[in-house]
Amino acid sequence: MSTKMLEQKLAELQQRVETLEARVKPASKGNWRNAIGFAKDDALFDEAMKLGAQWRKKSNREDH
């Protein structure tokens, strides 16, 4: 790949990053408090936690 092509790709990537950064709300101090309870009554989250617990239990049995 030529230098000119690399520079063009880099410019495109920089533009994409700027676009993505403009969409993201900057994190504020203490923002974690806003996340508390975000998964309350969420069936998919509950299922993910259940599957994770099963995986950890199985993994721990196989280790010993």
Rank of each mutant, 00 (worst) to 15 (best):
N60Y: 08
L20I: 10
Q14T: 05
D63L: 15
N34L: 07
L20Y: 07
A48I: 07
S2H: 04
E47W: 06
F45N: 08
R61W: 03
Q15E: 12
K9T: 09
A35M: 09
F45Q: 08
S28G: 05
D42R: 03
T3A: 06
A27H: 05
G37L: 01
N31P: 00
Q14D: 14
Q8V: 01
A53Q: 11
L6I: 10
L10K: 10
I36T: 04
G52A: 02
L10M: 11
V24R: 01
D41M: 02
K25N: 10
L44T: 15
N34A: 08
W55P: 00
R16Q: 12
R23M: 13
R16V: 05
E12V: 08
A27C: 07
D46F: 03
K40G: 06
T19C: 06
A43V: 11
S59Y: 11
A11N: 06
K4Q: 13
L51P: 01
E47K: 14
A27E: 05
P26R: 00
L51Y: 02
E47R: 14
E21Q: 15
E12C: 03
V24L: 06
A11Y: 01
M5A: 15
N34C: 01
K57S: 10
E12I: 07
E7N: 14
D41I: 02
Q15S: 14
N60W: 07
D63F: 09
E47Y: 07
E62N: 12
V17E: 01
G52R: 06
L20R: 11
K9G: 03
Q15V: 02
E47H: 09
D46E: 14
R56I: 03
A27K: 08
V17Y: 03
D63H: 12
K4F: 05
R23S: 14
V24P: 00
I36D: 08
K58Y: 01
V24T: 07
F38Q: 07
V24D: 01
F45K: 05
D46S: 09
E12N: 08
F38G: 00
M5V: 09
E7P: 00
L13F: 06
E62F: 02
L6E: 11
K57P: 00
L6T: 09
W55K: 13
K9N: 09
R23P: 04
L20H: 08
K4D: 14
V17R: 07
V17P: 01
F45C: 05
E12T: 04
W55L: 14
E62C: 10
N34Y: 00
D63Q: 14
L10N: 12
S2T: 11
E21K: 10
S59A: 13
E62D: 06
K25I: 13
A53G: 09
E18F: 03
T3P: 00
A48L: 11
S2N: 10
L6V: 09
A39T: 10
K57E: 08
S2K: 06
Q14R: 13
G52I: 04
T3C: 00
P26T: 02
A53L: 07
K50M: 09
D41P: 02
E12Y: 04
P26W: 00
R16L: 04
N60V: 13
A22I: 02
